[in-house]
């Protein structure tokens, strides 16, 4: 695992991968969104509004997977003292928070024509809003400690990231545990209750958004590493 601990070796891999992830992600996303808007038939009950599914679901997935990534990075930072893990945690926070916000807003836009309300305090919506606030807290802690942590995050921030992961299974189970306005899970281990005619563009946008997310994380990691390197060099020059 420490093979990539050396930033120079990591950068040699990250540089080509940024483009390799970004462009296929963009193409898949354009294809998925185009098909989701113009090719698939409308839903029997909701009509055209069902098309919001193709962006709402990937945003929800990335918001939650982002925090999963923060938690794994925090574990690697606290247990193995992996130097890049702290940088990865900080790099994930911004896109994770953005996609959580996109999930909340597209959900709200979807709720108005279908449910008849922009917002209700049911279990799913409330726990997703809590995730957004957790991201804001993590980013505030990370920014406050960035200087001492050489661009990474402080151990306190990492512990916060680990503790916040408790919310992820709660979001996932919220529609099963509690009566909620949000419907139950459509895609389970037993199959999908979304008909194939409506389901297939979701695969394209899911993979597309995920690749873009990974490209953004790599760009942000490269930025943080470069800034830390410049900072260190400046300090050495000032001393020498």
């Amino acid at each position: 695992m420490h093979r990539f601990a050396n930033p120079a070796r990591f950068l040699n891999i990250a540089r080509p991968f940024t483009g390799w992830l970004f462009w296929p992600g963009l193409i898949l996303l354009a294809a998925g969104a185009g098909c989701g808007l113009f090719v698939t038939p409308p839903d029997y009950l909701q009509g055209e509004t069902v098309r919001i599914l193709y962006i709402h679901v990937p945003a929800a997935w990335l918001g939650m997977a982002g925090w999963g990534g923060i938690a794994v990075a925090a574990l690697m930072q606290l247990v193995w003292r992996h130097p890049l893990a702290a940088v990865a945690g900080r790099a994930i926070a911004v896109p994770g928070a953005l996609f959580t916000a996109i999930c909340l807003i597209t959900g709200s836009i979807w709720g108005r024509p279908t449910w008849g309300t922009w917002w209700e305090w049911d279990g799913r919506m409330t726990s997703m809003l809590v995730l957004f606030f957790l991201y804001l807290g993590y980013m505030a802690l990370a920014n406050a400690s960035a200087r001492q942590a050489q661009g990474g995050v402080s151990p306190t921030t990492a512990i916060f990231g680990l503790v916040g992961a408790v919310n992820i299974p709660i979001i996932n189970r919220s529609v099963v545990w509690w009566n909620s306005l949000h419907q139950g899970p459509s895609i389970t281990m037993r199959g999908s209750s979304i008909d194939m005619a409506l389901l297939w563009p979701l695969g394209l946008t899911l993979v597309g958004f995920t690749l873009l997310f990974a490209a953004i994380v790599l760009m942000r990691m490269r930025t943080i590493l470069a800034e830390a390197k410049a900072e260190a060099r400046m300090q050495r020059m000032a001393r020498g």
């Binding site: 970004f22 969104a33 808007l37 055209e48 509004t49 098309r51 919001i52 962006i55 709402h56 945003a59 911004v94 896109p95 953005l98 916000a101 996109i102 807003i105 597209t106 836009i109 979807w110 108005r112 024509p113 958004f209 873009l212 490209a215 953004i216 760009m219």
Partner: peptide
């Protein structure tokens, strides 16, 4: 209107972040 609003918002936010 709802669909286009949601798509426009999502793609402009993603593009700006990139």
């Amino acid at each position: 209107a709802f669909v286009i609003g949601a798509y426009a918002l999502t793609f402009s936010a993603t593009f700006l972040l990139c």
